[in-house]
Write a protein that binds this DNA or RNA. Structure first.
Lengths: 248, 248
DNA sequence: GTAGGTACACTGGTCTGACCAGTAGCCTGC
DNA sequence: GCAGGCTACTGGTCAGACCAGTGTACCTAC
């Protein structure tokens, strides 16, 4: 016979449990309202600070949102990947994760997204990609910021075609963290125009591969482009971590 | 000129920001302690309830832990995947992410981990895998629980060889969520012994591929095994989401 | 000297009560 | 009919209090 270690259960945790249970069980649907804090404190039989700490936890998990002055009370939110995004972002910024690992991970995600996009794309998706590419082409003359936004949009369309929110969120997070890590080095990159042109022609190639349903080709193009653009910022000793992905 | 919508910034959010910044910047390392709540309230110039709500948010994100009575104050925790697991689990429970998406993601991660393992493995890694496989072989006769533990250990070795914490953690989390989603269906699976034997021979094949540095082969074996084992729980209409990954 | 117990200062958890700024809806006065 | 203000709420914040629990330093008994 073995005993389990016990942890004291705080009052606010019991409150969180009950409300969370009501939400996941469907008793409280998105858009519906919770009673006001003062009402909750009588229903649960606890003080207002306890109720408020419980609501803070639920709010941090993106399950509810409360606005001051709203007499209808805190609102139950629909499940969204925002919380997933936040927790993954924190994990990716942990110090054990370096640029090499991030880039490796991004090559995996981006490659898979492109592969799936090439295999699953519909005709609507293709026209969406066409317009996104067109926006990039226009962006070249409107400055780097504009171009960069169009670039992100293109990648978002690709990710969306794969129809996998996990893939979309992971890719967003990893791309964001990579940019955070090297933004200072990118600041004074010279000859941006030629960079943009190269990037543009790469995207055109990718689009061709996707159009012809060439998953492996699209995936390889995506990974190779990431390697070509970012490997210079990775310590030379760690680059062998990336090259195996180019051979698949 | 366009204006941005403004949202009121709550005092506790500013507190969260500052502490979070201190943690991600490395000024506060895991194991170190925050000042006590009463001390924080003078440093930030806010009331204790505000400090406490901020700490609650950070605690919900698994960044800190506070224990009553500890005179050293709240402890800064190392980055952990618990929060990621929670938010992914919530998404899965809310049907925003189905088994198909989870499995798709897991095939991507597992396949890539195997590919990297085959390309990067050292001789030490190979002996580690040998012993892990041996433990599985013994586990067959010691019941399903024992076997399952050895199986997890084998996968952990593979993940560790890829030397990418993000890959390892994501895989763990996704596997956990998948198992939670279908555990009731697994409960009354018949003839577990034959299942274990099949699983065992699959792992032996994988190990062979890794030993001969056949990355593509190992990746394909891993993805195929996942498909064979879990596709039956995926609605038939969504299985085409998975099959493109088997062709790469 | 050391093992044991004890007192104290402090921690976080909780409650009460108060005030403020903001919101929504009603309710005037025109 | 409608603009404007009034009112009764909301959540955000603060202050102060009490409690149970913890770690430490001291102090005792051997």
């Amino acid at each position: 016979m073995r005993f389990e270690p016990v942890a004291p259960v705080r009052a606010y945790e019991r409150v969180v449990e009950q409300i969370e249970q009501a939400v996941v069980s469907g008793a409280l649907k998105p858009g519906e309202r919770l009673p006001s804090e003062r009402e909750l404190m009588t229903q649960f039989g606890v003080g207002r600070s306890t109720v408020r700490e419980a609501l803070r936890v639920l709010q941090a998990a993106e399950m509810i949102r409360s606005r001051p002055g709203d007499p209808r009370g805190p609102e139950v939110l629909a499940a969204s990947p925002v919380a997933l995004h936040r927790s993954m972002h924190r994990l990716a910024r942990a110090d054990h994760v370096g640029l090499a690992e991030l880039l490796q991970f991004r090559m995996i995600l981006d490659g898979s997204a492109h592969l799936l996009a090439a295999e699953l794309r519909t005709d609507d998706d293709l026209t969406g990609l066409d317009t996104a590419l067109e926006a990039m082409r226009e962006g070249v003359s409107h400055g780097y910021a504009e171009f960069s936004r169009a670039d992100v949009a293109f990648h978002e369309v690709i990710a969306r075609i794969s129809r996998n929110p996990l893939l979309v969120v992971s890719e967003e997070v990893v791309r964001g963290v990579v940019l955070e890590l090297i933004e200072d080095k990118l600041e004074h990159a010279s000859n941006r125009t030629s960079l943009m042109r190269a990037w543009l022609s790469h995207h055109a190639e990718v689009l061709d591969a996707i159009r012809s349903a060439d998953g492996a080709g699209a995936a390889h193009l995506a990974k190779q482009a990431l390697y070509d653009n970012y490997a210079e910022y990775v310590p030379a000793g760690q680059r062998p971590l990336l090259t195996p992905l180019l051979r698949s």
